[in-house]
Design a protein around this nucleic acid. Structure first.
Lengths: 215, 215
DNA sequence: TAGATTGTTAATCGATTAACAATC
DNA sequence: TAGATTGTTAATCGATTAACAATC
């Protein structure tokens, strides 16, 4: 872990999780015609601690900010893109073209972040051959060959919780290394495969819970 | 903050965020006919540190676990429900019945967590009067009266990013105290209103980023 | 009993906040 | 220059991990 220690190039996970927030805000600002921005303005708008923002930015920016002026927005955005890997387009497959799956297929936001779902897969014969959001829906039998041919590493699971584990096992055997799971269930995976669970219900529950604390 | 210090009833935020995970796992186990479970089994299955799980459970459970046996699953689930507030049904409104909005309206997972979207709202005349997932779609003009009548505190925003700020301002003026934002943009809110941003694209980007680190 | 598993107290780790000198 | 804003080092805070005695 002591590879490149030129200038404390170690960026905290927590910082990484805030970068999209900054990026989104900077995009707004540049659309409003702004050219420079100070960390304190960002902090205030985003309701974050000013020192925290300053430290985050210090970690990612290639050109230091200028006292009195702040950071050049355009440069800063490029730096953030670099760190988030928005430049290397990431291709993924989606399994399960139900309602949620269709939403994800046609979600345009992904493009902006360098993400591309190449196809949806489903067992339902009626869906196969259709296009949703410009993406083809293919038979499950095509899954393996597509993953191999395009060397895809990331899969999105939008099937029912009953099928999630079986599908995941298949995906892993085909070479998938990262799974974004929307099925509201726990999935067991071998070492080396990373997973991100997106439990929408739990997410909303957490919000309402916090609300009830604030009375 | 020194109200009820009977038995360290202060539960960490991080613990709270893991509770849905435990809950989901316990549900599986009880369906398999299990009656007791040990923290170490939970930890192993969920790939968490055993001590962490033990501590989390110690914090929420009303009946202590039994050495050698573990915790009674059913009791534990009830305790978790208590802590997550799954029991007090939370009602919310959804603004923006586009593709994402429709998915959320018909997402059945919410029910299990004591969450209920009472109606969807949209400006599109063609949608008004329809039912999706059993929930009516109403005109925006009905929004205020519904929030007031049912005393609703939580709103879900699934409109385009251009409209998100304006809608939020309206919602706050109607009395909404918590916003779950799916529009990929930053929203400015007054003190006292809490927000949870659900940036799907950023979420996937983070996953693929982590993948690329693992090479 | 012996052994597994619990709950708790202390140690470590990581992230946030505070303080402050440097700079335009 | 004076003042705002930067980057960095140190202090605090919170969460995780380790250690261990207590219990069935």
């Amino acid at each position: 872990m002591k590879t490149n220690r030129n200038k404390s190039i170690i960026i905290m996970k927590s910082t990484l999780s805030r970068l999209p927030l900054y990026y989104c805000f900077l995009k707004e600002k540049i659309n409003e015609g702004e050219q420079y921005i100070s960390s304190s303005v960002i902090a205030e708008s985003l309701k974050l601690n000013a020192i925290l923002v300053r430290k985050d930015l210090a970690g990612v920016c290639s050109v230091p900010g200028k006292p009195r002026l702040g950071f050049e927005i355009e440069k800063l955005m490029i730096d953030i893109e670099e760190h988030l890997g928005y430049n290397n387009v990431n291709e993924s497959v989606l399994i399960g073209v139900g309602r949620l799956g269709r939403t994800l297929l046609s979600y345009e936001g992904f493009m902006n972040y360098g993400l591309n779902i190449v196809a949806g897969f489903d067992v339902d014969e009626d869906l196969i051959g259709l296009k949703i959001g410009g993406k083809p829906i293919l038979s499950m039998s095509k899954l393996e060959s597509m993953i191999e041919r395009l060397n895809i590493r990331t899969a999105i699971i939008a099937v029912s919780k009953e099928h999630a584990q079986a599908i995941s096992d298949k995906l892993v055997s085909f070479g998938i290394k990262a799974i974004w799971n929307f099925a509201p269930t726990h999935i067991d995976l071998p070492e080396g495969v990373i997973i991100k669970n997106e439990n929408l219900a739990a997410s909303l529950a957490a919000l309402t819970k916090e609300l009830s604390k604030n009375l």
